[in-house]
């Protein structure tokens, strides 16, 4: 089971972070060539990220690169560099429609063929950052078989909505819309960055909300948040114990040819069994909550 709980953002221009961030073991690392990089350092960030991807430093951690929009002077050069460097996932910013994904996919395939990389091996992620993107989330999420997920990005979105970050009310519709679109397309959904790195309690409150909503994970801007996030996403020992008993009861019922599964006198239906299997896979992949 591929866990995508934590996606650690780092500026592609920061040599120190690129040289060390793998030690924090996020599920995914996202090298940013867009908003975190000044205009005069775009070339340097692209080159550093190219070499970081090829260095082997991030073996075992999913690599993602947020390129500049293809409509900008930098986007196509970013794409050439990172696809050739072997990035696992290209993150497209400011995705407003399925056509944005189609255009990206066309260019990725062209580069894959040109450099001898297997066609289809570069996966995609679309970041939704506007009202249009949220409204079109369903068609965006199903726009390409390469998509592994869609992500809500809050800073641009709240500006587009003429509001500001607050207690989460301002993101309520967008979170639900993006999440439902992802689930319809059977891909992952990623929540927004929590900007106050010194507010652990506020961070954990937001993590609890998005975990219960059903998000796979969250974008992060500080490595300190990784362990907090992973722990919050881990099932408890009690949940794992209950899941084991549910799965055992289901297997026993199947062995005995029984149509009805019972545990401690209560009927267990198929969705509960499937959820129990998911809990066990999560525990196997990420341990239990501390």
């Amino acid at each position: 089971m591929k866990l995508r709980r934590s996606m650690l953002f780092m500026p592609g221009s920061n040599a120190a972070m690129l040289s060390t961030a793998f030690v924090f073991k996020p599920d995914s690392v996202m090298f940013d060539l867009e908003d975190a990089v000044s205009l005069r350092e775009k070339d340097a960030a692209r080159m550093l990220t190219f070499h970081a991807l090829r260095s082997g430093l991030y073996d075992g951690i999913e690599t993602v690169v947020r390129i500049n929009p293809l409509s900008s002077p930098f986007g196509m050069a970013d794409l050439e560099a990172v696809v050739r460097a072997g990035v696992e996932v290209v993150r497209l910013p400011k995705t407003d429609s399925a056509d944005d994904v189609h255009r990206l996919e066309t260019e990725v395939e062209r580069i894959e063929r040109a450099c001898g990389r297997a066609v289809g091996s570069t996966r995609l992620m679309a970041a939704i950052e506007s009202a249009s993107g949220v409204i079109n989330a369903v068609s965006i999420a199903s726009a390409s078989k390469r998509l592994i997920g869609i992500a809500l990005a809050a800073f641009d979105y709240v500006m587009d909505m003429q509001t500001e970050r607050g207690d989460g009310t301002e993101l309520y519709y967008a979170r639900c819309a993006v999440l439902h679109a992802a689930r319809c397309a059977r891909i992952d959904a990623f929540d927004v960055v929590f900007p106050d790195v010194n507010d652990d309690a506020g961070f954990l409150k937001e993590v609890d909300l998005i975990r219960r909503l059903g998000f796979n994970g969250k974008s992060l801007i500080n490595p300190r948040q990784i362990e907090l996030l992973h722990n919050a996403y881990a099932p408890t020992v009690e949940e794992v114990d209950y899941a084991r008993r549910v799965v055992a009861a289901a297997e026993q019922a199947e062995t005995q040819g029984l149509g009805v599964i019972a545990l401690n006198g209560k009927m267990i239906d198929a969705p509960i069994v499937e959820h129990a299997r998911v809990v066990l896979r999560r525990a196997a992949a990420g341990g239990t909550r501390k």
Binding site: A15, L18, S19, A44, M47, L48, H51, R54, S55, L57
Partner: peptide, 17 residues
């Protein structure tokens, strides 16, 4: 104290410029 990959990236950037 740069890693080899950083040395290459910085040199290629400066030559590009």
């Amino acid at each position: 104290g740069a890693l080899d990959c950083v040395i290459r990236a910085r040199l290629q950037t400066v030559v590009q410029r």
